[in-house]
Write a protein that binds this DNA or RNA. Sequence first.
RNA 1: UGUCCGGUGGUGUAAUGGUAGCACAAGAGUCUUUGGAGCUCUUUGUCAUGGUUCGAAUCCAUGCCGGACAGCCA
Length: 604
Amino acid sequence: MANKASEPAAATGAPNTPSDFVRDIVIAHVAEKRYPRIHTRFPPEPNGYLHIGHAKSICLNFGIAREFGGVCNLRMDDTNPTKEDVEYVDSIIEDVKWLIRGWADDRLGLKPKGKFPVAQTVNGKNDFYLGPVTGASEVPLEPFYASDYFDQTYEYAVQLIKKGVAYVDDLSAEDTDKYRGAPDRPGQESPFRNRSIEENLDLFVRMKNGEFPDGARTLRAKIDMTSPNVWMRDPVLYRIRHAEHHHAGAKWVIYPMYDFAHCLSDYLEGITHSICTLEFEVHRPLYDWILEQLDLPRPLPHQYEFARLSLGYTVMSKRKLMQLVNENLVSGWDDPRMPTISGLRRRGVTPEALRDFAYNIGITKYNGITDVSVLEYCIREDLNRRALRRLAVLRPLKVVITNYPEGQVEELEAVNNPEDPGAGKRKVPFSRELYIEREDFMEAPPPKYFRLRPGGEVRLKYAYIIKCDEVIKDAAGQVVELRCTADLGSKTGGPTAARKVKGTVHWVSAAHAMDAEVRLYDRLFTVPVPDASGDFKQHLNPHSLEVVTAKCEPGLKDARPELRYQFERLGYFTLDQDSTPDRRVFNRTIALKDTWAKEARKSA
RNA sequence: UGUCCGGUGGUGUAAUGGUAGCACAAGAGUCUUUGGAGCUCUUUGUCAUGGUUCGAAUCCAUGCCGGACAGCCA
């Protein structure tokens, strides 16, 4: 056991509650009773599958909701119909629920299907609000959608125009670019910047009505073209897109930009802490500006930024992950080699392991690269506790026990999980002909090799000590079979059971073995930072997937997809969805630590 | 040569003016019917220079280095 709890739990007063600068801020706000309730949100754009970097954000946002008695809304940030799709919406919902189940699912804020913000009066002012539903509900629920707020967003845009702080611009995209200037050079005002409010109003309505083609005009905030912050140089608020929206349908041909929609979505939902990644830091003045221009009666949300996750030996951007999928370099978004949540799930990683990982890496504003070994450690630690031990041979080598009677079968007792006595025991059949791992025999082994060699002895796990008498080879000189004799008194409880033998080896009875397809995964890339320069795909690991036919103990016929298995001495495995009743398919989630491999590498 | 944000062992993070700690990684040992797990131990760090202070990783100044930002993407 690590000397720290794997689960943060402020609510129960557990000692190892996560602590970071974001939570420090929340703690201060709770202390001063700044908000009636802490309300966060997780707002992915449905333009790809969620990855482990999103998992970090989910754990932060739902973790805060959980620790401070708040709510975390799941919201689709879907303001760009040309890039989004319901396939992604569905996968996001599944992944989020999977990751927080049994941990923060009671903090998940959803809303009744089809419900929109409702008009209300607060302090004599007009307002819109859409609150969350948590827990069980009699009506069907769905996530929040930024696209459900298009009516309100439009309304707010009109308010900005009436106030004289937004205008319709006729500049082309190219010219908008030119007029913006550069970070170290001020921009210039658009010739359309000083239209009358009436003209702006008229033009904006006509934009909405579809009178203009894509790109013909935009609605822009009127701020300051000379601002040192490029995002304050009259940012675009609305653009024209004659495209059907996956959620809003065909109602709109103008769509709000992220900066305009996001702060308003936060406000409409009553979000208090809008937590995002560092690249939005320069957008924060705009976030605040928009909300402050509108005369909003309720407390305004505030934005806080933290460093996104970078993991070694993988890529994290949705664009690059999509490239791997589209170019068939992986089997799909849920390929077990992908850093996606669905890929990790299929690989056999549990939500607990992912949450533990998120806890361990912390939250800061420093952009570093996290070592994959941290993830691997969290996965192993979790699986070591829960995995059922089984015997399986990945690369079989036949062994005949010459002094063991032909036709005899013994049912030997094997421990299911030494870490968990409650997991019980099982029987595995033993007979004269067995398979052992090819790697567990060497004709001319290097020093410190503890396994089988000609004339040497090794313990068969849960069975006998055997001695290798004869090595049988084929015409090509390949070792194809070993002839051994067993010390028949060396079985557990036997007279010579206590004899010390250096090595213990796993095995499977040949006659009883079940064949299974086993997929062995390795890291997807060969270098720590594949996208450091050039084409990241040139660093793909050609050996990231190896498929073998393994010999498994017969009990593995009953393997269940929700369980985790350790094939002893090899690694952790889980049943893949490609399994059929006739053919089991296992994914290797992760190999066991292999100090022998390290030793062998050292001497090589 | 713009604005904003950062810089603590190899990596990631803590210490919020008072003993630089934790985890991973690495190494040594112990134990073991998994070369797994466990247990014990070890190596390695405050970007630099000044200043404030009894005392600075922490506050101030300057410098250096790194990141983000110039989509009608999010």
